[in-house]
Nucleic acid binder design. Structure first.
Length: 261
DNA sequence: AACGGAAACAACCGCCGATGC
DNA sequence: CGCATCGGCGGTTGTTTCCGT
């Protein structure tokens, strides 16, 4: 005999609209409708309903039971357990891996830790100048498709590339007056000229209009050409996707797409 | 030396397509 | 064909580290 499940389901729908009325521009109308249902269902029914509910309302089941899993930074012991397990059994079956490896972690967390940090073929360390250039070129072509970009950089992960882009390259392009989203020169009058300060620790980029350290400022050598050949050459292995529409420059626009140094 | 803000980056989350049953 | 799960992706958040004052 199937166990009956008792569900009380409450739907609350808010329909909101804002209308511009001459005398009362901020007038807003809102309607709310609430509907309550009490259902008595078998377990089979609830499974079916739960599935469609998650699908329809994009509320997925959690990938694991959050109550019994660790979160946050990984300890050395956890890392070692994961490494040992994968060396012995190989990658894959991430959902069942934590229990098999004796880890109180979500399978997704294990996968991410391995792929982004523990994998033996990872390069780590600072990005070289040629890697920076390649990321910028590829981003101009591919947009935020980090896994594709990372695929062209041996030993680098999509997460690493994405972080490096957001924390470093984005700012670098802005300082050169280039919109990092579309790789075009910014039209604004406040667009900055390219400038770089080397302070011995890390490169910093400065605004030459306001820079007070002209002696230590240097302009980057930008000899710009556009090249796609290296991507096209092995497109079987790394297919070149469609260039995002916003990255395509039409008409008489100045050639501002910076691709190859 | 202490503090606060900025930068860097590891990790998490939700979504989605692929795949197997 | 529908259901269920898995793996991968990109966006975002949280924590740590760095640096200037």
């Amino acid at each position: 005999m199937t166990t009956p499940y008792f569900y009380k389901v409450t739907f609350v729908i808010y329909i909101s609209s804002v209308r511009t009325v001459p005398d009362s521009p901020s007038l807003s109308l809102s309607l709310s409708l609430s509907l309550s249902l009490s259902l008595s269902l078998t377990q089979t029914h609830t499974n079916t309903i739960r599935y469609h509910f998650f699908q329809s309302f994009s509320m997925r089941k959690p990938c694991c039971d959050k109550r019994d899993t660790n979160k946050g930074a990984w300890s050395k012991q956890e890392d070692q357990k994961l490494i040992d397990y994968i060396q012995k059994h190989g990658e894959g079956k991430w959902r069942s891996l934590p229990q098999a490896a004796g880890l109180l972690r979500c399978g997704k967390s294990c996968r991410l830790r391995w792929i982004n940090y523990l994998r033996p073929d990872l390069k780590r360390g600072n990005f070289a100048e040629d890697e920076e250039d390649l990321i910028i070129k590829l981003h101009a072509l591919l947009g935020n498709r980090w896994s594709l970009i990372a695929g062209r950089l041996p030993g680098r992960t999509d997460n690493e590339v994405k972080n490096y882009w957001n924390s470093h390259l984005r700012r670098k392009l802005k300082s050169q007056g280039i919109d990092p989203d579309n790789h075009r020169l910014q039209q604004s009058t406040t667009a900055r000229q390219p400038g770089v300060i080397s302070d011995g620790r890390k490169d910093k980029f400065c605004d030459t209009a306001t820079c007070v350290e002209e002696k230590t400022c240097k302009l980057p050598d930008l000899n710009l050409t556009i090249g796609l050949s290296s991507l096209v050459e092995d497109k079987k292995q790394h297919p070149v996707p469609t260039i995002p529409k916003e990255n395509i420059i039409k008409g008489d626009s100045p050639p501002t797409l910076i691709l190859f140094r």
